[in-house]
Design a protein around this nucleic acid. Structure first.
Lengths: 242, 242
DNA sequence: GGAATAGTGTCTTTAAGACATTATGCC
DNA sequence: GGCATAATGTCTTAAAGACACTATTCC
């Protein structure tokens, strides 16, 4: 600000995506094996540089979502997670990443035929176990993304984004159990989700296939925030108190 | 990705700050009258370009905090709010802003002597009333910052960041009432904050000056998350349900 | 009928909402 | 004593936790 013709340092912008979904009642994240340096061969979150000077950040996120995961803008939830800009996070220079969190229902193998065929769904547990090496600071971004999802399940109707257009209450419970990693009492869960008015609404004549009694189908309701919130039982990780 | 030597478009990075504090039991935000184009003469959030190629984002935020508000890194809360990158948000070109939320106790007029003497504390109500024009997309950033503060008061011990090193329970209640904009019952508030173990702990021999009975003093406790959370009464703005 | 899953009901316990009352300082 | 603010207590009510039970389908 004080020098004669000081110019601010330019940076490069990437958009990275934490794409979460449920597979076999387990939380999974989409990872891609990098084809180029740096971190060639290492797993990374899908993402890439801003396409052009005028591209909006959300637009770029949707573009990457389509290119790298074959996911269209409909029927998925997308929100900003934050910005990651440590000076040394990318060996190529000053690259700042806008991270987005996407939540999608389980789709029919969305990966195989797409542009980036090196994409693979990895269980969240495994991705953060330490056994898997992630490129850049993507482990931190992934951790933050999962934390965000866990928090938002408490106060928002976000859980329905993990489900298809219609779903059963058991499936919804599956979402909560998988994301939070704790078992829930089915009867109390039923009472709770039914009592929050507008969270889920009955859909169609209701029916489903399994071994037992058919379950009613529901759609997401108009309500986006949950009052009172869902209560997440504190798992083993309750650092404070006893 | 497909062309021969495609290079990603560089962008400029700014760091903008939503600095909140309490003044006369009202939520205030620090605004600065811009001295240069664009938006010269218009009120804006404090902030500025990244200082140099190697500067970390949080470091830049702390630097701006010191330069523009005279606030040191101690005894204030700072967290990232998000990134704002609409292509047309800055007439100078592609400028992307990393927004940070800072919460500080009321300090002895921190503004007057500092570098930027055009800084002024403005009540949040007034800043968002529409009467005040804010530069760039700073109205949106401010709205998001206040929303974030409101949410975090529910589940975190953030409220103590508005207070000095020691405070009375009444002062803490003031924080909640000012940020949420709703009156709270003092007796239930006492019961609540005392029951959340580790939220606040007695400090010193306890005493304070007013007209009436001296109040006990407390310090922030080790607890950072509140279980169960503080309940925010839904003000007039309860779009869903009745 | 038996297995499997869906859905409902009841009792208990925790904690919030709505109050009144007592306590301790200053003038 | 009178005033002002701090602090505590009680009753009610809402909602979560912990259970047992009935219902509907397929074999």
């Amino acid at each position: 600000m004080s020098h004669d013709h000081w110019v601010p340092p330019p940076v490069l912008l990437t958009v990275d995506l934490v794409i979460l979904t449920l597979r076999e009642s387990c939380l999974h994240v989409l990872l891609i094996e990098r084809g180029i340096e740096p971190y060639q061969g290492t797993l990374a979150l899908p993402g890439g540089f801003l396409g052009h000077e005028k591209e909006d950040l959300v637009t770029a996120a949707h573009r990457e979502l389509a290119e790298e995961a074959g996911l269209g803008p409909d029927q998925l939830h997308l929100e900003q997670l934050g910005v990651y800009g440590a000076p040394d996070r990318d060996p190529r220079g000053r690259v700042v990443s806008a991270a987005y969190l996407a939540i999608a229902p389980r789709l029919p193998e969305p990966v195989a035929g797409t542009d980036a065929s090196r994409a693979c769904w990895t269980s969240a547990e495994q991705a953060l176990s330490g056994d898997v090496q992630l490129a850049f600071d993507h482990e931190q971004i992934l951790t933050d993304g999962i934390d965000r999802a866990r928090e938002k399940l408490e106060r928002s109707a976000l859980a329905t984004a993990f489900c298809g257009p219609t779903f059963t209450i058991s499936e919804l419970q599956d979402v909560y159990e998988a994301v939070w990693g704790v078992p829930l009492d089915a009867r109390n869960f039923y009472r709770k989700v039914q009592s929050v008015d507008g969270f889920i609404v009955p859909a169609g004549p209701s029916r489903k296939t399994d071994g037992g009694r058919p379950a009613r189908l529901f759609r997401p309701g108009p309500r986006t925030t949950l009052h009172p919130p869902m209560i997440r039982p504190l798992s083993q990780a309750d650092r404070e108190t006893a």
